[in-house]
Write a protein that binds this DNA or RNA. Structure first.
Lengths: 343, 343
DNA sequence: AACGCTATCCAAAGCGCTTTGGAAATCATG
DNA sequence: CATGATTTCCAAAGCGCTTTGGATAGCGTT
């Protein structure tokens, strides 16, 4: 059964103090004794009780992820699983526990306060930041180390984040299309209140401006990034007097919807209509092959999870470390979904 | 800042004992005093320190989910996010923490032992059971309450699980197709070592037998359930001397691949070729509308998460409760992807 | 008036660990 | 060989809570 420090110490004829020091690598213990202790500990598979340890040390050895679930649309972000997987790997190997809280979004603030008050975590990861996100201010105030996956746009004080360069990615993607002669490019974006949506649009607008192309509101959409959303976008836009010849999609799933729409319309992707989508490189939606199916702005969200976790752990373990930030670039990977505009 | 029981007691001129009893609803405290205590506690937003509490009570108030990540294929199951979301809701409202461990699959057993030894959890959820899954025996031996999402096939002793009736679902789906006159039906299944894959195949085989149809190995595939996997399956099978007229897909993502394959081949889904897929009702892959795009065997994995969590909590809170099992049926929802066989 | 109950509160121990402040033994040093 | 410095160990307190085993006061009974 589970063996405690005290029992282990007794079985060795030593005090708990010495055993604890030996196990935790303190210097003041005879090498021979230490060896004996380590051996015995390994033999009985001793593991310190997490709760006791963290009560004594004051550190939770755990990182929290609070996932708000909107009671209205109930969408669970599909990138969530891969990000968590990446972050979780890092936590595990650093000896941290990952604790997840799924809460209705109106209770998110309370969840953070609760985690702090109960001393359940040493830091938290902030998911899916909004353009104006109150969480940054809240967490700064609470004094809990945190790292934002993404950014938010109106915060006075600096904070730590890891983001991909959404603006640059979408500017490059748009440029790529304009260079192929496309002049009517649609942007099938995510929900308006998300911060990344805003940045992607900026990149798109930058490129249009640089190419001297007009902005047409009719070619820009915001919505929950589902497959039917993509489908609807393309089937409706094709009926415009001057329909788009190219589409920028905000996710692979949306791109699937676009593709289906094109197929139903009898249009060939890459010839009649071009598509570029952002690809989070989700493990179950691979876009590979000699020539990938889609041209994408690609960036592994799993890798983002790994890096974000590493940064957060640093913030936790070295308090006073200035805000940490990291901007990941995404690759523009050319696949079969783009081509010169048809005359 | 964070206030402790002792501080709260001191500020009220009471002993920690009384405050603790008042907060935990014990009878031996004067109603007036209790009210005073509750008020003060609410005012300073007192929350008992989780670790201290669980050290004292011996209960972790936490449920573990161990997610093995294969180092070889690295696929994170897409249903994972929705299941977790469902389970998480339940845990939260029951006052339990959810702790997640992402571990390389060869270390999974160690992860369970570790969780037990450290006393980090009161129970665990077992994901993605294999046909022959060693975890059930391991966990029984460890004496840790657990619930399996799915089933495994060769375990002597009874265990608790929640599963969908995969066999029945796939039998009905196959029947539905045979009744439409299909005689060449392909089964695009998941990885062979997964338990549900086996059950689905059994359902499929049952229906073929009932319809007096021969089994053709060339029409059955196993593989990681990605979009390209579906695509490859259909494009290759169509070249068979006697190609299938209908496909059973094991997930929505696979069905997307099938659909793309058909489109590339110039075949119309629902007319030239029929498709039925299992639909886990993932929030970001909706299959709705007056006439859904796909005919599916549908069962919400989110709801499964909710129920599984409830069952697990019951096992944890009422030890000695016999093994709990629940078999959910999935609905056969008719969409636009099926039709009578073309002559 | 003495008694036993009951209601209400508290002191103290304990959960399993870490950590402070010695104590004892060993060592080098003059 | 006495002295101070090191090395090596341990007792005890403490982390924030629960819980056992009283203590005290107020109450109704006889």
């Amino acid at each position: 059964m589970t063996v405690t420090l005290k029992q282990l110490a007794a079985s060795l004829g030593l005090s708990p103090t010495t055993v604890s020091r030996a196990l935790n690598g303190f210097p003041e213990v005879n090498p021979a004794t230490r060896k004996r202790i380590l051996q015995a500990a390994a033999e009985v598979e001793y593991r310190p009780n997490t709760r006791a340890k963290s009560l004594a040390t004051g550190r939770a050895q755990a990182i929290g992820h609070v996932i708000p679930v909107s009671t209205s649309h109930e969408i669970v972000n599909p990138i969530f699983a891969d990000f968590i997987a990446g972050a979780g790997e890092t936590y595990s190997s650093a000896g941290y526990e990952m604790i997840l809280r799924i809460v209705p979004d109106e209770e998110e603030a309370r969840a953070y306060r609760d985690l702090v008050a109960r001393g359940s975590v040493d830091g938290v990861m902030v998911h899916a930041p909004l353009r104006h996100d109150p969480r940054v201010a809240l967490l700064s105030e609470l004094g809990l180390p945190f790292l934002v996956h993404g950014r938010t746009s109106d915060v006075a004080r600096p904070y730590s984040w890891l983001d991909i360069n959404n603006q640059r990615a979408f500017r490059r993607a748009t440029q790529f299309l304009t260079e192929f002669g496309h002049r009517r490019i649609a942007l099938i974006n995510g929900l308006e209140n998300m911060d990344f949506v805003h940045r992607r649009r900026n990149g798109y607008l930058d490129a249009l401006r640089e190419a001297g192309l007009p902005v047409d509101e009719a070619l820009m959409r915001n919505g929950e990034m589902t497959e039917p959303y993509g489908y609807r976008a393309v089937t409706e836009m094709v009926q415009l007097p001057d329909p788009p010849t190219a589409f920028l999609a905000s996710s692979m799933i949306v791109a699937y919807g676009l593709r289906r729409g094109l197929a139903d319309l009898g249009l060939r992707m890459g010839r009649d209509v071009s598509i570029i989508t952002h690809d989070d490189d989700l493990s179950y939606l691979p876009n590979q092959g000699d020539v990938p199916v889609f041209t994408t702005t690609k960036s592994s969200v799993r890798e983002a999870g790994r890096r974000a976790a590493r940064m957060l752990l640093q913030l936790v373990e070295e308090p006073g470390t200035g805000p940490l930030t990291q901007l990941m670039e995404s690759a523009l990977v050319v696949g079969a979904s783009t081509g010169p505009v048809r005359k």
